[in-house]
Design a protein around this nucleic acid. Structure first.
Lengths: 167, 167
DNA sequence: AAAAACTTTCAATTATTTTTGAAAGTTTGA
DNA sequence: TCAAACTTTCAAAAATAATTGAAAGTTTTT
């Protein structure tokens, strides 16, 4: 396989994987492109390579920066902005995990707590509902806590975690 | 909060959470409904409670069974089919993780391997591409392996994992 | 063996999400 | 201070995903 073909295949695949996990396909593609680019990339180049509009590029780059996994980079003598991806995979995974926790898991946990405090009703159905939502809250809380514990290892957390598991 | 209100809120929230993770909202809602139902639920009741069509219910129940997290249950003296969710959360999380690995992660890994074997081109860009995609393949492989290792603990794997981490 | 009871399938429709592109906004440098 | 260079915003359009419902399929009962 040639470089251009391989690069394109990688970008497409990463985009599809993102889609399957609820991430805008274009956002994932831009991220893919930046991940394999040695030098910072301009918005113009991103539009060019992915064949997307300026608005689309702008919005999705903003999105990636909000996730904390893409940064602006200034090239000396250049007026326009360039972009680079966080290339440290430990850091990348940590950022994604923490952001998903903050945006999606924690709000859901809040609701689980609320609904498991359903009052008054003593029917068997209501009791089972409380039991189940409490169990869910407990499980999801503990899983969410793990994100914090594991990412505290920082550098090479995946390797360190694997060591612990194998011990 | 009253039972009906709480149940509805839970179903809505679980549906929204599913959406954010790339799962059809209705599928996640049906799953939510089954998770908090004490008795097996008929397709009729699911349609009723979620206000959805027969086709929609049928297709999404099939989807949930394909994930291995919802089963058919026969009620004695009843002709039609009833459905129950896997209520063991360790088992539920294991099934989801293994299925996502199989459907989404492993195919992506295959592509990462392919593209990182890009041939011939000795440009700095191509070298960087190979380096990055190899790093990604390595990282994702190891994360994927962890799913297997961790779920080998089976019963209470989350608790056991937490113990290992804290030790 | 036929009808009744129920489930699945899928083409057409509807809803949702994503994308575009031009106008508005911002920054830089002449 | 102005205009050129660049970025952001957002309403409208396009693309994608989800849903419907009726016909076809299947199983059970009489």
């Amino acid at each position: 396989m040639q470089f251009d073909e391989a690069k394109n295949k990688f970008v497409q695949t990463w985009g599809a994987l993102g889609s399957q996990w609820g991430i805008n396909k274009t956002m994932a593609q831009i991220h893919a492109l930046l991940m394999v680019s040695k030098e910072p990339v301009s918005m113009e180049d991103i539009m060019q390579e992915l064949q997307i509009s300026r608005g689309n590029a702008s919005m999705n780059l903003r999105g990636l920066m909000d996730w904390g996994i893409v940064y602006k980079a200034n090239k000396t003598g250049e007026r326009r902005e360039f972009f680079v991806a966080e290339k440290d995979l430990d850091e990348l995974a940590t950022k994604i995990a923490k952001e998903r926790s903050k945006r999606e898991i924690k709000p859901a946990l809040k609701v689980l707590k609320e609904v498991s405090a359903v009052e008054g009703d003593n029917s068997a159905d209501a009791k089972h509902f409380v039991e189940q939502t409490k169990k869910l809250h407990d499980f999801v809380s503990r899983a969410d806590e793990m994100i914090d514990k594991v990412t505290e290892y920082k550098d090479n957390w995946l390797g360190k975690l694997m060591m612990k598991i194998l011990k």
